[in-house]
Nucleic acid binder design. Sequence first.
DNA 1: CTGAAAGCGCTTACAG
DNA 2: CTGAAAGCGCTTACAG
Lengths: 344, 344
Amino acid sequence: MSNIKEIAQLSGVSKSTVSRVISGRGYTSQEAREKVLKVIQELQYKPNAVARAMVSQRTNNIGVLIYRSQYPVASHPFYGKILDAILAASAQMNYSVFVTTDQEMSLRSADFMLEKRVDGLILISRLEQNVIDHIGKFGVPYIMVNGSTDVPGVIHIVNRDQDGGREAARHLTGLGHKRIFMLAGPQSHRSHHFRLEGFRAYLHEQRFDCPESSIAYAGASTFAEGYRRMEESWEFFQAEGYTAVFGTNDMLALGAMKFLMERSVNVPGQVAVMGFDDIDMASLLTPSLTTVRVDTAKMGQLACLMLDKLIRQEAVKDTSIELGPELIIRSSTWSDRSRSDRSL
Amino acid sequence: MSNIKEIAQLSGVSKSTVSRVISGRGYTSQEAREKVLKVIQELQYKPNAVARAMVSQRTNNIGVLIYRSQYPVASHPFYGKILDAILAASAQMNYSVFVTTDQEMSLRSADFMLEKRVDGLILISRLEQNVIDHIGKFGVPYIMVNGSTDVPGVIHIVNRDQDGGREAARHLTGLGHKRIFMLAGPQSHRSHHFRLEGFRAYLHEQRFDCPESSIAYAGASTFAEGYRRMEESWEFFQAEGYTAVFGTNDMLALGAMKFLMERSVNVPGQVAVMGFDDIDMASLLTPSLTTVRVDTAKMGQLACLMLDKLIRQEAVKDTSIELGPELIIRSSTWSDRSRSDRSL
DNA sequence: CTGAAAGCGCTTACAG
DNA sequence: CTGAAAGCGCTTACAG
């Protein structure tokens, strides 16, 4: 592959001039410019980004570090959406993006990024404190998206999960449900914790019954766990006369719904089901799932925007950004039948 | 951040010696080694990968270029899985991976990669011929995964889609279905084309009726298209007495199934539905979807393995690799009821 | 076993 | 307006 030296020789100018032509910085005569450009064309010359990064101390790369104890990562129904948004936004801003996942070997993948000299880092999901400390030490700008830990001074982009939980509770109680069962994801994770908290807070304020026994804690926020917890609780659920289920994410809710459907329980006629996230599947299933949408597109976009500012050392005022959730009503909670059943 | 020069000064040796200690190449005295290592520890020194890449002419980066006319890319139910497998395999092989998507601006994203100097490229899905030509010109090793075009001399990793199509046809006819409706994705795409071809070939060989009218061609391989085509064809479908639908991918099949369920058609009792790919959703829905599984995990893994060989200039014998499809029978085609209905 | 020097492919002051 | 030189942070022969 050709380099600047070759271009210089062939066009009869110095390397400096070639560089100036390419960058458009500094003065160059019309004549020199034309000669150089022509040779560049002919040789299909592409400046070496590695060499450029070396001198400019800027790689134009950003790294995305997604914490997941196991795959899927990219194809994860929720995190994958954030990643997609990051990919889209960063392409527009002329950043290339490294994608890494962080499993057991937490520090190793972070090092990977740091050695690669990314200009900045986007950390998604929960990150162990030691990884964060580690990254912090290197002075690389970074942003946390939907993180579980609130590290002071770090820019966080999160969903207003408490509000979302409240909206969910309002929706279900508004439909006439008085006894609502909750499927709660890992409480160590910020989102699941706040979603549940918001949901309960609303019930409490409105004087609805909301004992601990109405909550099943899932060990993971997966479809399988949702199914299993629902199955385990089913006898109790029936005995206690619950008429609705709220899952702190869609996967849990969908797992529960699968169980109900296998038992030929009518959703929403006999039991209403509601989730949180609005993953793609939510709208595709039959019945489609009522949920609270998290604006993953904006999360990714903002993350890139803010990170770019940090990288360019611009002033960033907000140390944390909260996005508003949006209630999405679909057929798993609402239908003509469910309406008449509980005489809304 | 510290560099090799600083380490050298602090440990009282030359840069060369520091470099030798770090790389483990060449001779170093025990004493020098200890001093250097200690300083490295203290300063938390990380060698600059950009500088290394500059001299070694190896970046240890690979690029993944996914062609998609629109998002999702990473979170795509099928391509996302391949990406995940690539992420997992490349991490093990100490490659970092750039992920780019290629939309309108085809050449631009490819250039991005080439300027970044990746050691190699993995191209997923269909790629325009001019992009391929472009990449080929730069002498960067690359591999195509599930590509739609058969560029001679390029290593392709694909699924044996014709065989998969045949298996699907065998399964459905084996269940007693005689009139099968087909939902075909874009025939410009290799997979959809071969899947349909295999399916029809089997029907033909077994003397089943298989006119062109039994095929609805979808403009895209999406859920929405599956739904829409099924809806459009529904009257004809009933009039002609079809008892099964085969979609050339799961999304099409699921869209069709959604339509059927909304019409309260019993699946598989009245109509059996079958897809291709085995995306996550396929097993989660009710009824779960019978499909032909594509081994995306292996696709991604092989892609990395082969690419690494190309990068290291090792001999690669196979110019193309075909993976075997696997029939996955679930409840959308098979149940006790469906069995008795057609007296299997 | 160790250090000085050259070089990877660029950019950026600095003379001219 | 242009070119020679220095330097980004490493590695790799080459003397010693």
